[in-house]
Simulated assay, not measured.
Amino acid sequence: MEEIVVLIVGAGPSGLATSACLSVHSIPHIILEKEDIYASLWKKRAYDRLKLHLAKEFCSLPLKPHSPDSPTYIPKDMFVDYLDDYVKTFNIQPKYQRHVESASYDEADGKWRIEAKNVLTGGVEVYVAEFLVVASGENSGKYIPELPGLDSFSGETLHSSEYKSGAKYENKEVLVVGCGNSGMEIAYDLSNYEVQTAIVIRNPVHVVTKEIVRVGMIFSKYLPIFIVD
């Protein structure tokens, strides 16, 4: 059993940012990460043309702004380089391949008890912490709804986290389901490879340019949200 002041679950950007802030204040902490690398979504499951959808001034991590020379909307590879430099700057050292299986709070002791499986050894490690930070990410797991006929569909089906580039689908027909950031950008990427692309949307949407979004976020610092909207 290992006792620590703060335990962080997840070594994505949020977990790394939390670690950096704690380090600056000399607060002992541990990061547990289920993958074998930090920022695994960015490094393993992001499509090639991905860029930050918000301007860089809204996407820097604490204590380290993006370079003034970097583009306003930073591409994936440049953001990964930024994360690499961030980890090096603050000497962040997650414990990898630790899959958190349970976390319970002891009212009497006022502490958290966390159990994590060490994927390499198969053993269970126990941690006791005063504070628990869950930074596992809202997009850490893929979800494909059950659709009638999907099992018998003879073509390829994949989740957006498995998509890399439209090059392999050249001159084919592709249906994109959903129009969130990933759906819209993947559909656009496919269209650049002469793919016959269609996209289906559950509800009507408002489409605005990224520049308008940037202006809105700047105004939100000074005006009520209902006025910005």
Rank of each mutant, 00 (worst) to 15 (best):
G149L: 03
Y127G: 00
A103R: 00
P145M: 06
A129C: 09
K168F: 06
E156V: 12
G122R: 07
V124R: 14
G180W: 03
E130H: 15
E125L: 15
Q97G: 13
V176N: 02
D151T: 15
K142G: 07
V126K: 14
S165Q: 08
G122C: 10
A135L: 08
E125I: 13
E156Y: 14
K142P: 04
G155Q: 05
A108V: 07
E107Y: 08
Y105Q: 04
E162T: 09
L147V: 10
L132D: 05
L175E: 07
H159I: 01
G155N: 05
H99D: 13
Y96T: 09
Q97L: 15
L132V: 09
L150N: 06
S104T: 10
G122A: 09
E173G: 13
H99A: 12
E162Y: 12
Y96M: 15
L147K: 08
S182F: 00
I144D: 02
G149C: 04
S154Q: 10
I114F: 07
S161D: 12
L150D: 04
G180D: 05
K142S: 11
L150W: 05
G122K: 08
S154Y: 08
G123C: 14
H99C: 13
N139H: 15
K168N: 09
Y96V: 09
E170R: 15
S182T: 00
W112S: 01
E107H: 13
S160M: 02
G166R: 01
K168D: 08
R113T: 12
E130M: 13
T121M: 14
P145A: 07
S160P: 01
S152L: 10
N181E: 11
S161T: 07
G141S: 11
G110D: 02
K164C: 11
N171I: 00
N171P: 01
L175H: 06
N118T: 07
V128N: 04
F153A: 01
D151N: 15
S182V: 00
P148Y: 15
Y143T: 01
V126R: 11
A103S: 11
V174S: 05
Y169K: 03
A116V: 07
G155R: 04
T157Y: 05
V119H: 08
L132T: 04
G137W: 03
N181S: 14
Y163C: 04
C179T: 05
G180P: 02
K168Q: 12
T121A: 14
K172S: 12
V128T: 06
G166C: 09
K164D: 09
S152M: 09
Y163G: 01
S154D: 05
S182I: 00
E130V: 07
R98M: 10
L158H: 06
D109K: 14
Y127D: 01
P145N: 05
Y105P: 00
E170C: 14
E130I: 05
G122T: 05
V100S: 01
Y127L: 08
E156F: 14
D151A: 15
S160H: 02
G166F: 03
N171M: 02
G178Q: 00
S136M: 10
V176P: 00
Y169S: 05
G123D: 15
D106Y: 08
V174I: 10
G180L: 02
G178V: 00
N118V: 03
T121L: 14
Y163Q: 02
N139W: 11
Q97K: 15
A116M: 09
K164Q: 11
S104P: 05
Q97T: 10
L120K: 13
R113A: 12
L150M: 14
S160C: 09
K172A: 07
N181G: 14
D106Q: 11
S165R: 08
V124P: 04
